[in-house]
């Protein structure tokens, strides 16, 4: 028989899962944003030089 009524325990587990999902999604967005900024603000002439890596 399927469980039809959610217990408090299920709500807390769901909050953990949703929270972790949002954190991971935010991480992907942040890395994408940082990559965009680094790529667009580094002069092409510097690519491959020490400055580009910094």
């Amino acid at each position: 028989m399927a469980i039809t009524k959610l217990h408090e325990i299920h709500k807390r587990r769901k909050s953990r899962n949703v929270g972790l999902g949002l954190v991971l999604a935010a991480f992907v967005v942040l890395i994408l944003g940082l990559t965009m900024v680094k790529v667009t603000t580094t002069p092409i002439s510097n690519i491959g030089s020490a400055e580009a890596h910094n």
């Binding site: 217990h7 408090e8 325990i9 953990r16 929270g19 972790l20």
Partner: peptide, 14 residues
Amino acid sequence: TLDDDKEASFGDFF
């Protein structure tokens, strides 16, 4: 018996 007071939510980790 569900020891629901001990189940952590996302807020507890935060």
